[in-house]
């Protein structure tokens, strides 16, 4: 089944400042979508709008034919990595994901172990989260976003704190998500990495989409 996110004339204003301005987009699961732009350009806000965490001031966001905040509050199945991941200090990586997935009860212990392994961490590692390096924290954040095999995966700056091995790992993760039919949206301020990771990219400036191109065209 193909998954879609459609944004129709979406505008978001926070304290008189327009952070997303009349954006219309249609994203599908056959192409990994990349959002690029400088800090403060509105990438994160656009992603929050897609997840339902914030409400558009104008316009509508439609996920798989259902309108957010009208038909549904949040996408039915969505994995998210927004900014810096924050987990419980005193739990291990596995413990944290186990707690997180207990809410829906969809992921098995095997799924958790697989997700942790996929991001290059050891599921049997008893090290507490507080002792993780920044890169390990980011990897666990990525694992949290994909552990339940969601239909939509949204990752804001997933390459933060990752070394070159980490970026390679991320490429593998994104490929796998795309192959199993998930709709993947990424943001990154590094254009080269973003183009390596995505099939179609959109450039955002001051909350407006100023350009969109298929990566093949650019190449």
């Amino acid at each position: 089944m193909e998954h879609t996110i459609e944004m129709i004339n979406v505008t978001k204003t926070i304290r008189k400042s327009t952070v997303v301005n009349d954006v219309s987009l249609k994203l599908t699961s056959d192409k990994v979508t990349g959002l690029m732009g400088i800090n403060g350009s509105g990438k994160t806000m656009l992603m929050r709008l897609m997840t339902g965490l914030i409400r558009p001031t104008e316009g509508s966001v439609i996920i798989d034919g259902k309108e957010l905040h009208k038909d549904i509050s949040f996408p039915d199945s969505c994995g998210l990595l927004l900014e810096n991941p924050a987990f419980i200090d005193s739990y291990s990586g596995y413990g944290n994901l186990e707690l997180l997935t207990s809410v829906r009860g969809r992921a098995t212990a095997e799924d958790i172990r697989n997700a942790i392994s996929l991001v290059g961490l050891d599921p049997d590692d008893k090290k507490k989260y507080r002792k993780y390096s920044l890169g390990m924290k980011q990897r666990l954040g990525i694992a949290a976003a994909i552990v339940e095999k969601p239909d939509i995966v949204i990752m804001d700056e997933p390459t933060n704190s990752l070394d070159t091995d980490g970026v390679d790992m991320l490429k593998g993760v994104i490929r796998e998500q795309k192959n199993r039919g998930a709709l993947v949206v990424l943001s990154c301020h590094d254009m080269l990495i973003l183009k390596e990771l995505s099939d179609i990219t959109y450039k955002i400036e001051s909350g407006i989409i100023v350009a969109g191109e298929e990566v093949g065209e650019a190449r």
């Binding site: 997840t51 339902g52 965490l53 549904i72 509050s73 949040f74 996408p75 039915d76 969505c78 994995g79 998210l80 927004l82 810096n84 991941p85 924050a86 987990f87 944290n96 997180l100 809410v103 829906r104 954040g141 949290a144 976003a145 339940e148």
Partner: peptide, 16 residues
């Protein structure tokens, strides 16, 4: 509502 709490909120599906 910080960190992975946002994931939980989305997974729950309903703010209520």
């Amino acid at each position: 509502l910080l960190g992975f709490g946002k994931n939980v909120l989305i997974q729950v599906g309903r703010r209520r």
